[in-house]
Design a protein around this nucleic acid. Sequence first.
DNA 1: GGGGAGAGATGCCGC
DNA 2: GCGGCATTTCTCCCC
Lengths: 243, 243
Amino acid sequence: MKAHISRIKDALTKAEMIILGADCTVNYSGRAETFLPRGERIIMIKPDKTLLVHQPEGNTPVNYMKGESVHELVEEGGKLYLKSQNQQMQEYIDIAIENLHFVQTTKLTDGQKLQLTGDERDMADMIAADPSIIEKGLATVSREEQTTYGFVDVLCKDKDGSLVAIECKRYTAGLDAVTQLRRYVEKLKASKGIVKVRGIIAAPSITDNAKKMLADWGFTFVAVEPPKYKERLKKTQKRLGEF
Amino acid sequence: MKAHISRIKDALTKAEMIILGADCTVNYSGRAETFLPRGERIIMIKPDKTLLVHQPEGNTPVNYMKGESVHELVEEGGKLYLKSQNQQMQEYIDIAIENLHFVQTTKLTDGQKLQLTGDERDMADMIAADPSIIEKGLATVSREEQTTYGFVDVLCKDKDGSLVAIECKRYTAGLDAVTQLRRYVEKLKASKGIVKVRGIIAAPSITDNAKKMLADWGFTFVAVEPPKYKERLKKTQKRLGEF
DNA sequence: GGGGAGAGATGCCGC
DNA sequence: GCGGCATTTCTCCCC
């Protein structure tokens, strides 16, 4: 135990990655208040002082603290506590460690950034580059046209010269997508003093309610698949199809 | 190395928590496509088959895979790969492991759930229990009143008998909060055939643009602090104030 | 299981 | 720094 403690303290000063397997209870106080009764979890303290507490299940950490937090390992009344606080956010975490199963510390070297393709930006770029995907005769006017009530993903003119605001969604468009579009169309009408501005939602699909609301406002939906979506699956299927 | 590999494979079959420190490159294909060049990271495979890849910085995993994924450790051409796939989501991750710094496996027992107070639900409950916080003479009609275009956080009647829709936000209300409120108010008017329905946003603060849009629609803003917000800080300040 | 909305959201980009 | 918005969002809850 003594060896564990000194190893953690040493790693904290050296800004090494620290990973603990611990039987513990967790209290958080800050933007809200949480309590996690005793159980076995993984505690991770990153070189940038991010703290993560992970349960055996689920994607998201059950408790966490932003980078630049201050962590301290203290012994009080024969018990071990990990006390963390973030001055900026005025947040606090106290972890009462009942049992320390293992301690792993390591220096990590990694300056790489994730390269991602196929997000909403790519989808909007794809449409802006060739708006005929949406409708014949469309011509792109601008990308991310600013209005005081937010920005339009892709702004086009149709073959009749009417402005067309296009809102892109990578997933099923819901009510929020329609209200967003509506906001932009209204603001465009007001700011430019035009009566007719069309609105289009470009997404792979749309919910029934959103479709109704879209109809209420005279907008339309165009089914568009986001780029790079399940690319590997498509390749696999193609390969299978070749045989 | 051989010992590492067999330990990982064994832990996978036993559904133990697996944590690797590895120099690796990561490819993901599914809802999008990502590539992460070589660097040192922490790889975590949970008992429920969630996969997380963490860089030395930041709160969120750089790559991940939902639970119920299938993970396989394979050696190809003298190199070690961790190949994961999720059948449901049609997603794939390949991790090329250049160097395995450490392997940690452990059985984790934890059936506990996080207990949280101070979220939006608590805030809405607080207002519903005593709507005079918002305005004198208000009486609560319902919580989460359903409309086809979404549900109203708190529905009240004012001293004149007019319906009042209240939208709660724990943080600074933005444009989206106003459009949400607008949606509900319009739907309430339509479904109940009433001309006058008031709209109120209850939040600690509101952005300038949202305030303008609120005014455009004849709605109002009431400043309300969410419950339990920075509770510990308040306690500390109170204690300090005593001296 | 889909839809709607919050999250102790986080992170990114633009003004 | 605030604001507006996407996220491989995730997660919960209600229909």
